[in-house]
């Protein structure tokens, strides 16, 4: 009993310290993610996975569209985390426009636990606990512990509290690496991919939330190296967009970009050069709306 009482006291203290470090970070990923969740005020937000984070050059978008913008892409994450961020953002203000980078393979079954990691510390915000429990019902119990909420984050929190360094340009993080040889097509192999119905349900919720708040929403699929023409993985998103009357801009097979592997850093990501090329093409397309 004494043992667990001491652990409970440490747990509470740990939570208070981590909450403070999280909200007072000076740089790094901690600051960027806290900014997305609690501080953004830009007219245009760009959301999605690493393909958003590394493909959409914020400065070009701002200069061309004459709107303040921020790139909210997060590596290794997707629609579930973005929906969580959207809930917190719309509690504060209503952005004019959101661009969501949704490539079909983001909707395949994969580790949804990842989304938990970045939302756990905000579980008290409206709607966030529902997201967490939709992934794993037992989260409701686990979240009683602050140590669990900030699991494995204490060192990054301390580092980002002390150091103010950041390589991001308003959320955009260019990759300065060029593929040395033609990367292989991610979907040529015979892996069987299964659509994740939970993720697709969050696409619908994301759209509904934007429509409810009168936010102009555009879905976009950025270039992907060597995508075979017969690939159909964008179809589920396209059909949801059609059903909900949301524009879907598909650049995944833009040959001007995908035919040159030097625009890529690996199979799924553009490098800095490719990102500039793509963002300019995106701007041209957006001006049509």
């Amino acid at each position: 009993m004494i043992f667990f009482s001491i652990v409970a006291v440490i747990d509470c203290g740990f939570g208070v310290i981590c909450d403070y470090l999280n909200s007072h970070s000076k740089g790094g990923d901690t600051k960027d993610r806290y900014y997305i969740a609690k501080q953004t005020s830009e007219d245009l937000l760009m959301m999605g996975s690493s393909r958003m984070h590394h493909h959409y050059v914020t400065e070009i978008v701002e200069d061309s569209l004459h709107m303040s913008a921020y790139n909210c892409g997060v590596d290794g994450n997707g629609i579930i985390l973005s929906y969580g961020y959207l809930l917190m953002i719309t509690e504060r203000y209503k952005p004019k426009m959101i661009i969501y980078d949704a490539t079909g393979f983001d909707m395949y079954e994969y580790d949804n636990q990842r989304s938990l990691d970045l939302l756990k510390e905000y579980y008290k915000e409206p709607g966030i606990l529902d997201i967490l429990t939709s992934i794993n019902k037992k989260e409701r119990i686990k979240l009683l512990s602050s140590l669990y909420r900030y699991n494995s984050k204490i060192l990054p929190l301390l580092k980002d509290y002390i150091s103010s360094s950041s390589s991001n340009q308003k959320g955009y993080a260019p990759i300065n690496r060029e593929a040395q040889e033609s990367p292989t097509d991610l979907f040529v192999n015979n892996n069987v991919f299964i659509l994740d119905t939970l993720k697709l349900s969050y696409v619908r919720k994301f759209i509904d939330k934007c429509q409810e708040n009168s936010i102009r929403l555009i879905f976009c699929s950025s270039p992907l190296y060597g995508k075979s023409p017969e690939s159909t993985y964008n179809d589920p998103i396209e059909s949801i967009c059609q059903e909900k009357h949301i524009p879907f801009l598909d650049f995944s097979e833009d040959h001007e970009i995908i035919d040159d592997y030097k625009n890529f850093s690996d199979e799924a990501h553009l490098n800095g050069k490719g990102a500039i090329l793509f963002t300019n093409k995106l701007i041209s397309a957006l001006k049509g709306f």
């Binding site: 043992f3 001491i6 440490i10 747990d11 140590l147 699991n151 494995s152």
Partner: peptide, 17 residues
């Protein structure tokens, strides 16, 4: 002994993978 095992327990929840 107590301090050691409390520390281990805290690390299990705080930084366990």
């Amino acid at each position: 002994h107590w301090a050691w095992y409390v520390l281990l327990f805290v690390m299990i929840i705080g930084i366990g993978v």
